[in-house]
């Protein structure tokens, strides 16, 4: 069963096969637990490095097919990956603590990328929404924008409004069941990537 939900051009959502292979660096050797104020740190700060050089060097990259690579992996391997970018085989994963500026620094035209995925390690990390917003409204990114990682039904409506059009539901949850989360509300109040504020959308004055 596929975990991938895709919004179609007509606004309908469907569970579809995932044609992309994710490239994931091996785990870090010294995965020391970081603590702050006695609690395990769950979130990286915006701007923190994602992988060590060692991890990046040891990352296995499949030789063919569509691959979804973390931005840092692209940076480390771009000499060899460049031709595949031209062939439309490269999608980029940005983590929620990484910046849109870093992505733009690599790709003058983001629309060269058929797919950008934002990886959210914990669903409660709301940076994913602002990144989606920026990619769509500021950077003019028009292709597939995918939420991956700890992606759950109860946040899908927000993801959608922040500009995402595909959603890779966490492996232990049903993508079919999550579909309904995309339609929790029919007339949201505020403007977002997908729409203007309700008072510009509809005539409320007759109330």
């Amino acid at each position: 069963m596929s975990q991938l939900i895709q919004l179609q051009a007509n606004g309908q959502a469907r569970v579809v096969e995932d044609t992309w292979t994710r490239v994931i660096p091996p785990a870090a050797a010294d995965a020391a637990v970081r603590k702050q104020a006695g609690k395990v740190v769950l979130f990286k700060l915006t701007g923190e490095a994602s992988f060590t050089e060692e991890q990046l060097a040891q990352t296995h990259i499949p030789p063919t097919g569509n691959i979804l690579v973390p931005l840092a992996v692209w940076q480390a391997h771009k000499a060899t990956l460049q031709p595949r970018l031209a062939a439309g085989e490269i999608g980029i994963v940005l983590a929620t603590h990484e910046t849109v500026e870093a992505l733009q620094a690599e790709f003058a035209d983001l629309n060269q990328l058929p797919l950008i995925a934002i990886f959210v390690e914990r669903f409660s990390d709301g940076r994913i929404f602002t990144l989606g917003h920026w990619l769509r409204s500021r950077c003019g990114f028009k292709n597939e924008l995918r939420a991956i990682g700890d992606v759950l039904r109860d946040q899908l409506f927000f993801h959608k409004r922040a500009g995402f059009n595909s959603f890779l539901i966490r492996a232990d949850r049903s993508a079919e069941a999550a579909l309904s989360g995309l339609n929790d509300f029919s007339q949201p109040y505020q403007g977002a990537v997908d729409d203007v504020p309700v008072w510009r959308r509809l005539n409320r004055s007759q109330a």
Partner: peptide, 14 residues
């Protein structure tokens, strides 16, 4: 109030 209600971008702030 209306703007902030279910604001999609600010649903999970720090």
């Amino acid at each position: 109030r209306q703007w902030s209600t279910f604001h999609p971008e600010f649903a999970l702030l720090p």
